[in-house]
Amino acid sequence: MAGANVIYGLGLQEGGMTMDAAQLVFDNEVARMVRFIIGGIPVNDETLSVDAIKEVGSFKDFLMHPSTLKYVRSQSRTEVICRKNRSKWENDGSKDTAAKANEKARWIIENHEIKTPISKEARSEIDRILKSSEKDLGY
């Protein structure tokens, strides 16, 4: 598909032979950030906070200015990648990215509701393919 922004291989490991749900969650987050950047980051007086810079002045604190708070969340909406400082991260349980991705993957698996169930015919065909593959691989 020419011109499409396709990201391939999310969740795959071992050269595509294995799928890992936690890896899929992590890769999805990275892909979301990449697609955001590919879509272009608006650069103008408002997003550069030109008025805030004039208001606050040189070498002052911009972190708590409303313009910073307005745009900081549009740049990075991570769920498993931690953006907290160390003390906040430690107070929140010190979970690393892999643990958070695993928890989110398990939550999705346990709570996801299939909106369009797979037909009995499709399920039978999937079972047939799996059994054939297991036989070919000696399982």
Rank of each mutant, 00 (worst) to 15 (best):
A2W: 08
G3A: 00
V6W: 05
I7T: 05
Y8P: 01
G9T: 02
L10T: 01
L10C: 08
L10A: 04
G11K: 00
G11C: 00
G11V: 01
G11M: 01
L12Q: 13
Q13S: 14
Q13V: 06
Q13F: 03
G15M: 09
M19I: 15
M19A: 14
D20C: 13
A21M: 14
A22L: 03
L24I: 10
L24N: 08
F26C: 09
N28L: 12
N28G: 15
E29R: 00
E29D: 09
E29F: 07
V30R: 04
V30S: 08
A31S: 08
R32T: 15
F36G: 08
I38D: 08
G39D: 03
G39H: 00
G39Q: 02
P42S: 09
P42A: 13
V43A: 07
V43I: 13
N44L: 07
N44K: 06
D45Q: 11
T47S: 07
S49A: 15
V50S: 00
V50M: 03
V50N: 00
I53T: 13
K54Q: 12
E55W: 02
V56T: 13
D61T: 12
F62K: 13
L63W: 14
S67D: 15
T68N: 00
K70F: 04
R77E: 13
T78R: 06
E79P: 03
C82M: 08
N85G: 12
S87T: 09
W89M: 04
W89V: 03
W89Q: 02
G93M: 04
G93A: 05
K95C: 03
A98F: 06
A99P: 00
A99H: 11
A99D: 09
K100G: 02
K100F: 02
K100L: 15
K100H: 00
N102R: 12
E103C: 05
K104D: 04
K104A: 10
A105D: 09
N111K: 15
E113L: 10
T116G: 02
T116A: 11
S119R: 01
K120G: 00
E121N: 04
R123Y: 09
E125D: 07
D127S: 06
I129A: 08
I129E: 07
L130M: 11
S132I: 02
S132P: 00
S133Q: 05
D136Y: 06
Y139D: 02
